[in-house]
Nucleic acid binder design. Sequence first.
DNA 1: TATCCGTGGGT
DNA 2: TACCCAAGGAT
Length: 353
Amino acid sequence: MRVEGRDTKIASDLLAHYDVHARRLPWRAPPGANAADPYRVWLSEVMLQQTTVAAVGPYFAKFTQRWPSVADLAASEDADLMAAWAGLGYYARARNLLACARAVVRDHGGHFPDTEDGLRALPGVGAYTAAAVAAIAFGRRAVVVDANVERVVARLFAIATPLPAARPQIREAADRITPDARAGDFAQAMMDLGATICTPRNPACGICPLRDDCAAVLTADPAAYPVKAAKKAKPHRLGHGWWIERDGHVWLVRRPDKGLLGGMRALPSSDWTAAPDATPPIDADWMMIDIPVAHVFTHFSLALTIHHTHVGSDATPPGEGEWWPVERIGDAGLPTLFARAADAVRKDKDARD
DNA sequence: TATCCGTGGGT
DNA sequence: TACCCAAGGAT
């Protein structure tokens, strides 16, 4: 009987644990079933980029019901897809999702490429997603490295180099422990481990299937891995938003495709800076809501002061946009910041009645 | 390589 | 409260 090397033992220990404790997730094929549908794997992987399983759940259900295949998705209208994505964040993903679906239909006969390189060439598919889809949907051996894998590997080998400089070293170690068979299960098992046991804080080392394989568990503080560089402080910004109502409709604009909340419907607003210009877009009798809408983006926080007004049926709106029925504002696909602004206006009007 | 890009939950 | 973090990609 061959004595297992340490790297081989990690994979076999982890897969044995996974066979018993794998999370049941909507995009995973049930145990014993055929390989997962590449469309569903790809869709879930894009939704899960920097996004929690809990947040993705309802969106994945909605998308797969409305667009059961990549061809269905490719045939959708841009505005419908963006509205369906509203609230999930990182809206470039939604634009790339549609571009990718259309490329798969146009260039690949409606079938996803079954290699890492082929997948990597698609819009919105980077190194991680290409490896994940190749391994999970097509059974390829691919080295799948996400934030979970980075954390687990950094602990297994007690890698002291700070991120991001440690990435090449972590990837090399991940490559060594990735098995030739069941690479997709191995990747998902690593992510399950990172999400449920080898967590960023307070890892449950006592019940970890890799406890005997782990270098960090022998140190005073396993959670100290991976070491990370200090991050910059988040600036605070201010802004003004304008709710213009006419005959039961509110004036909505569409934000530019590039940049923050790109391509999404929105209220007209000022620039967002330390001292924004508060000039309203039209002359009217404005009411200001005392408490601004607070929202935190990735690299700054925002306090948006909301102003609202009613104008007459003959009033001219400012610039490009559309009148949207106020009672259907929930269907406009507003990103969270502006959905909260709409809530604030509704509550303010209720309070004035 | 560094920066930009959302949001919600956990601590 | 304030901070951390998440199945990253594009530029």
